[in-house]
């Protein structure tokens, strides 16, 4: 696990790990690096296979954050795990839609919907 402030709140729901972003803005490269390290550790160190990323706190994110999420998606797939994104507000969803990443990621409106059938 990386050093630095925790950027994710983790909760176990059955066999699913819910990782909730604590930042409103995911912009700064240093923060994105910390978030990335914490996300990757879930797969690579803790061996979690079912992960839901909860965006309910997130008001802004940049393309640098998108890059980290893409790498996370690859790592989950390589570990034969499952990744879902949820509770993304419309402005942020538009960022995913413009870049067509809504085709790459499994995205649900709510946490409940993301947990269902994962």
């Amino acid at each position: 696990m990386s050093t630095g402030t925790r950027r994710l709140e983790l909760e176990e729901v059955g066999d699913v790990t819910v990782a909730k972003f604590t930042d409103k803005k995911i912009l700064d490269e240093g923060n994105i690096q910390i978030i990335g390290n914490q996300l990757f550790a879930l797969i690579e160190e803790d061996g979690r296979q079912k992960i839901v990323l909860d965006f309910s706190n997130v008001e802004y994110l940049s393309s640098a954050a998108l890059g980290k999420l893409i790498t996370m998606d690859k790592k989950v797939k390589a570990a034969k795990g499952k990744l879902r994104l949820c509770a993304i507000r419309p402005d942020i969803y538009e960022v995913f839609a413009i870049t067509k990443l809504n085709k790459l990621f499994d995205m649900k409106d709510t946490l409940e919907a993301a947990l269902a059938g994962l």
Binding site: S62, S63, L66, G67, K68, I70, T71, D73, K74, V95, I98, T99, K100, L101, K103, L104
Partner: peptide, 15 residues
């Protein structure tokens, strides 16, 4: 390119 981590900034600015 969809799974490559970089290259989205300019597209977002234009949009």
């Amino acid at each position: 390119n969809l799974e490559k981590p970089g290259g989205r900034g300019i597209m977002l600015i234009r949009s």
